[in-house]
Amino acid sequence: MLNQFALLGRSVLDRLAGIGRSGGVVWQSLVAKPAPFVMFPLLLKQIYFIGVLSLVIIIVSGLFIGMVLGLQGYTILVDYGSEQAVGQMVALSLVRELAPVVTALLFAGRAGSALTAEIGLMKATEQLSSLEMIGVDPLRRIVAPRLWAGFISMPILAIIFAMVGIWGGALVSVEWLGIFEGSFWSNMQNSVSFTGDVLNGVIKAVVFGIVVTWIAVFQGYDCVPTSEGISQATTRTVVYSSLAVLALDFILTALMFGDL
């Protein structure tokens, strides 16, 4: 019994220590003296790997989710004779919830896992150590550009997801189901507010981007430098960031739309 308490205490302490260390990693890498000439090309390269290469999965998923929303919205709304409101429903669900959340989940699987594995492998093959011995801080050279690239890419990906999704919704409901195009778009414009919906959605995407990238980078940097260690760290990245995104989404939604 006592033993179990000790184990529990131990694992709580380990978790806390992990959070502390991860805070330290982020702090050390972002609070560096900016060196734009070195940083900028590295940042562009990472934005390419993290952001641009995620575009395909984001666009395809956004399209399908928008089309499904259009279809489901129509079949539900048509019973009440208000199928003209499908544009509003598609846009609100995407902008407020689905774009930030689904993008973050896809981003964790596509870019987060790759970040963890890449940094973990650099650690295992002593590339991080050898950077250190060359006199280059790996937190600034390797970690910082990846963190910034994640912070920047994720909100942009979420915005693209929402736009493609809305277009997919329009495709299904206007082109296929024959809703009048004018009422589809005007309903949408009347009901989606910029500050209330779009801005809140972007804030969510920014928060998710920070959390997912932070988790991914730290898991790689802190992994046990072996094959098993890297594979476990990659799994943890996907699991932890998905859970964190869903939990944070609930909290943010409650704060933004809950009228508390």
Binding site: T125, E126, S130, E132, M133, I134, G135, D137
Partner: peptide
């Protein structure tokens, strides 16, 4: 890090 600029190290694994 400044001190390390004066050191070179060949790692056992190479670490390229």
């Amino acid at each position: 890090f400044t001190l390390r600029e004066r050191m070179g190290m060949l790692f056992q694994s190479g670490a390229l």
